[in-house]
Nucleic acid binder design. Structure first.
Lengths: 237, 237
DNA sequence: CGTCCGCTTGAATAGTGTCAAGGTGGGTGG
DNA sequence: CCACCCACCTTGACACTATTCAAGCGGACG
């Protein structure tokens, strides 16, 4: 059912890793700025900072007003939505290449809390910088819309796959989703705490634990050597 | 659980109500084009058609590729997502002022089937027209992004409110959502078939019927005289 | 070594789905 | 105008699924 957060202290302060070197970003092809020339970064007003956050750090809170977007270069981030009655649910999980905080472009408060699920590297961009780049390169607009559409597609899957059907099928769909987030080549999943997994699914920790155990017994999910990394086999219901 | 659609014949052909008269549109203030001058509409290449669809008409299908957006002026539209295994779920319900088919702007196939829940009036706009207007009025970009954000916010509520918790609370949240769609002043809901209501919630028709009956017995939901219109009282869990 | 936190498991209970039967109302055709 | 029909809604009984409360386990870390 709906989880009320067990209070665990959030870590907030990132470590500044320097100015982002977009020109030589190894994964620029998947990022927002793919297609920009090196020189385009020469005359932006505000720097793009490269920040490293520890696991369980809050990038921003639900309702905060801010003028910053975060581009995720490494690691995973959850978006958590809290309701008036205190119940909360993870509505999305973002991985490398995703951008969070797009609503800042519309001068709206952040719709969720964004919290790291692992150590992450992010590039922090101000709305002013992005708007400047957009005015110079109008096609960036389409890139931004594409990110919006990716979020929306993910949200729709979260509704129709992760939130519909039996717990068993929902877990399998979620695992497949997380496999994709991980790159998808090997069918391997970077795993998170059971509390988080349950909150993604909108079920109780105990139910997740039980059904997940079944999947392991059946061999559908198997442990790789690595801690908290699992392999998911084939297509199952 | 997941509903497999009972096959009911879809009506598809709209009735052409003439070219849209954006200049004198009574609800332009809530539409995409609020802010445009009358003269801006004088020199667009392709006409904006004003179409009326009967209840249960399909505007477009999931996976179709098209270059048309639909602005809803009157009535309600459901977005239905079907999975490989044939199960389907309503992931959103749109009302007056909403735009559907935004993904066409990115040359992507439609992500859902869009089907009218009532008789509807729509303005059909081609992507070329919108792009033309955008290039003339760059601030329209922000309008478009705002629509994207509204969809995303709605999707997130659909996850955290309509898809989490007990059936009872989910129905109440859905009803409140539909009250807002209806304008929200009076707390009155335009109602849809139980099959659709269940598909919005991801539950069975029977469970919806049972719990909805309880709410009526408790007086939380009461019938107005009008057919399929109900009043929802106060705040309840 | 002991504590804490997260995970697992059990048992009782509440919630939901499924199958099946019956009701209701609006529309149609006689 | 009435009778019938059909689509849709309601209700019951039962099986199954998921939650809750509770106890215990095990690794990480002081």
């Amino acid at each position: 059912m709906m989880t009320r957060s067990r209070s665990r202290a959030l870590c907030t302060d990132p470590v500044w890793q320097g100015r982002s070197d977009c020109k030589h970003c190894g994964i620029r092809h998947m990022m927002l700025f793919s297609g920009l020339q090196d020189s385009d970064f020469d005359h932006i007003f505000e720097p793009i900072d490269n920040l490293r956050y520890a696991e369980n750090s809050q990038l921003y809170g639900q309702g905060d007003s801010g003028n910053q977007l975060f581009s995720i270069r490494r690691g995973f981030v959850k978006l958590v939505q809290t309701q008036e009655d205190g119940s909360q649910r993870i509505v999305r999980v973002l991985g490398p290449g995703a951008i969070t905080g797009l609503e800042a472009l519309l001068n709206k408060p952040y719709h969720h809390a964004a919290i790291s699920l692992s150590e992450i590297d992010t590039c922090r961009i101000t709305t002013a910088t992005l708007e400047q780049l957009e005015s110079e390169k109008p096609w960036l607009n389409e890139k931004v819309m594409d990110h919006w559409d990716r979020h929306l597609s993910t949200a729709d899957r979260w509704i129709s796959e992760v939130s519909s059907g039996t717990v068993r099928s929902r877990i399998l769909k979620l695992l497949r989703f997380l496999v994709e987030l991980n790159g998808g080549e090997d069918s391997t999943v970077r795993f998170f705490g059971h509390e988080d997994m349950a909150s993604m699914l909108g079920i109780s920790r105990e139910t997740f634990s039980r059904v997940f155990s079944e999947l392991k017994e059946e061999g559908i999910v198997s442990s790789t050597g690595e801690n908290r990394v699992f392999r998911v086999s084939g297509v199952h219901r």
